[in-house]
């Protein structure tokens, strides 16, 4: 590649700690959510991202604030890493009107205009076509932004995946596709849902530049995302990143996990992205135990504060039930 921009993550102490903190925020936030779910503070579906934090943290570190993000129903991590406050995300989990979507969306539909976070899409594959359109729209207006679309490997079986990759490639739309391949679409293993399990190959078949990366390694993810973002930002069309990862927890809170072996889960937990990165920082001397302790207590305080914020939040009056179905006249 000619005129290679600076795409290497700068692993300063500050940046390293910020990556670690981002992952830890997601982890501790979700652990608290699981607890709150059993207390029935959070209802509906709750899909935890625990184990996959390196992807959201690594990719977000490579984006600009104006870039658009579309994620899935397992999007608490992306929402937090995109800059939406933990308070707003937690209040949304509760369904309070102080939440990021004013409580109307809940766990699966976190939105935020300031962070250009376009959801929280709970139809598998449903976020890909709008991501192509966001990219196309920016391109047609001569804007430098790109659209990043996160989705699981389960979405690869949907027609919308193939339609979207083809459209993005045809139109050279500035879209970064990030496939979070955690090996299971709910309970269906990759090898029994896909004839070609090397997912990045599918992108290649649409002539989209693609690569596969260790999704448990936040530095590898950020490095790949920087390469991808630089490529897309240069107007060369879409880019496809397959991040190989694993979900440590059940699909949702209703999942007995009959479809996978405990040994497999334990083996993947040995590759925990937070522990792995923290240990490495210690080995190379960039961070020390006291840094981790300080970080843990800061994050714990943030989580505690978010719970207090959500608890203190208010329920939208039923008299408002029908608002936000249509745009009020004169407000657009």
């Amino acid at each position: 590649m000619s005129a290679t921009p600076d795409v290497k993550p700068r692993l300063s102490r500050e940046h390293s700690l910020s990556l670690l903190r981002q992952m830890l925020r997601i982890r501790r936030f979700e652990e608290k959510c699981a607890e709150l779910y059993t207390q029935e503070k959070i209802r509906g579906f709750l899909h935890l991202y625990i184990g996959e934090e390196a992807i959201a943290a690594g990719v977000m570190a490579a984006l600009s604030p104006e870039d658009a993000i579309i994620a899935t129903y397992r999007e608490h991590g992306h929402a937090l890493a995109s800059g939406i406050s933990m308070n707003a995300v937690m209040a949304e989990m509760y369904g309070k009107q102080e939440g990021s979507s004013r409580g109307r969306g809940g766990s699966m539909h976190i939105f935020n205009a300031a962070a250009r976070f376009f959801g929280g899409n709970a139809i598998v594959g449903g976020g890909l076509p709008p991501a192509v359109g966001l990219g196309l729209g920016y391109k047609m207006q001569g804007l430098p932004h790109l659209a990043v679309c996160f989705f699981g490997e389960g979405a690869v079986a949907e027609g919308e995946f193939h339609e979207s990759l083809n459209l993005a490639a045809l139109w050279k739309a500035p879209v970064l596709f990030v496939c979070e391949n955690n090996l299971y679409a709910m309970g269906t293993a990759l090898q029994i849902s896909e004839s070609e399990t090397e997912i990045h190959q599918k992108a290649s078949s649409y002539r989209i530049k693609s690569e596969s990366v260790d999704g448990m390694d936040v530095v590898a993810v950020e490095a790949a995302a920087r390469r991808a973002v630089a490529f897309v930002r240069q107007g060369q069309g879409p880019y496809f990143l397959e991040c190989k990862t694993y979900r440590f927890r059940a699909h949702s809170m209703f999942d007995a996990q009959l479809y996978r072996k405990k040994e497999e889960v334990e083996a993947w937990k040995q590759r925990d992205p937070i522990k792995r990165f923290g240990d490495w920082l210690k080995v190379i001397g960039l961070a020390h135990d006291r840094d981790f302790q300080a970080m843990e207590s800061e994050v714990a305080a943030e989580v505690t504060a978010s719970v207090a914020f959500a608890e203190a939040g208010t329920w939208e009056p039923v008299s408002d039930l029908l608002r936000d179905v249509y745009t009020p006249k004169g407000s657009a």
């Binding site: 969306g105 539909h109 929280g120």
Partner: peptide, 8 residues
């Protein structure tokens, strides 16, 4: 989307 996003 308008509804899910709380009008955003």
């Amino acid at each position: 989307i308008r509804h899910m996003s709380g009008g955003q």
